[in-house]
Every structure is written in structure tokens, then in C-alpha cells.
């Protein structure tokens, strides 16, 4: 878990700020290079043929795992935690899923279909999607912050 001291940030002169920033930049570059290396390596291996027998249900009927590719050759599945009798989906998975919609069209342009799969029956997935609506209006969040 990433942690950071809670003391208020120290106020420093511009030169000291720039020096500290450059120091951090070194680490950031190191991280970027390692990230590049991982990006080149990690997904280049496959585990042989996957069981294609998955049948999944979505609002328009049934699909197989092959159908889920949606005409692309690469498929990313996010395994969303919504159990067969859960009242609602996991909040952390919902947090991750709040980042999905904006990526879908960009990924499609790179031959990737991004889909979400849960073990709950479809009716339960559909019911959960209808709850919670949109995010809390920012003003409400801001008022709450000011009270803290």
C-alpha cells in the first residue's frame, strides 16, 4: 500500500523545489523504463488453447467466449465481483469500472475488446447497473470536504 506522511508540505525556495523535483524525476524515469520493459515482456506468452465452452448471457441473448471478442483478436475481461446472491457489486470493482467506459473506444481501435464478466445471473447484473445512478454531484462532495 502506498503511504505518505500526513504533515503539511514544506515551503521551500524555488531552487530547492527544482532540485527535489529533478531528484524525483530520476526515479520516475527509472519507473517508466521498467514499465516499458514489463509492457514489452509480460503479455507475449500464451497458455495454449483456452476452454472456449464458456457460454455467457447478456441482454441480447447468449454468447460464447469467442463471441465476446466482438470481432477483435484480443479480449480483456475484467472479473467484476458480483456474487450470485449479493445485494450489490463490490465497491472497489466499481471504482475500477468507473474507468472503463472512456477506454473502450480507444482499445477497439487497437484490436482489443474490453468486457466485464460476473458470476451473478444477468438479471442481477442489470438490476445493479440501474442502482446508484451517476456520481454524487461535485458540490455535495466539496461541501462535505469543507466540514472535515
Amino acid at each position: 500500500m502506498a503511504t505518505r506522511a500526513m504533515e503539511p508540505p514544506k515551503v521551500v525556495a524555488p531552487a530547492e523545489w527544482a532540485a527535489a523535483r529533478k531528484e524525483l524525476l530520476k526515479k520516475e524515469k527509472e519507473f517508466s523504463r521498467l514499465r516499458d520493459e514489463l509492457s514489452r515482456q509480460a503479455p507475449r506468452i500464451t497458455l495454449g488453447k483456452s476452454r472456449a465452452g464458456l457460454c455467457i448471457r447478456w441482454p441480447k441473448g447468449k454468447e460464447t467466449l469467442g463471441d465476446l471478442f466482438g470481432g477483435r483478436s484480443q479480449l480483456i475481461v475484467y472479473h467484476f465481483m458480483l456474487g450470485p446472491d449479493w445485494k450489490e457489486g463490490c465497491p472497489s470493482c466499481s471504482f475500477i469500472s468507473d474507468h472503463i467506459d472512456g477506454s473502450v473506444v480507444h482499445l477497439a481501435a487497437r484490436d482489443v475488446r474490453l468486457a466485464v464478466v460476473s458470476r451473478a445471473p444477468l438479471a442481477q447484473i442489470e438490476a445493479f447497473k440501474k442502482t446508484h445512478g451517476l456520481a454524487v454531484p461535485l458540490g455535495v462532495v466539496e461541501r462535505q470536504r469543507l466540514q472535515l
Binding site: R51, G53, L54, C55, I56, R57, W58, E63, L65, L68, G70, H79, F80, P84, G89, S94, S97, D98, I100, D101, V104, R113, L114, A115, V116, V117, S118, R119, A120, P121, L122, Q124, I125, F128, K129, T131, H132, G133, L134, A135
Partner: peptide, 16 residues
């Protein structure tokens, strides 16, 4: 939740 992404059920299969 206001989401539009493709969300399907694997219920009854061994996928999960």
C-alpha cells in the same frame, strides 16, 4: 451505475 460497457454473466459456467 451509469455504465455503458459490455457486462455479461458467466452464471452456470466454470469461467470464474
Amino acid at each position: 451505475m451509469g455504465w455503458r460497457f459490455h457486462w455479461v454473466s458467466s452464471n452456470g459456467s466454470d469461467f470464474n
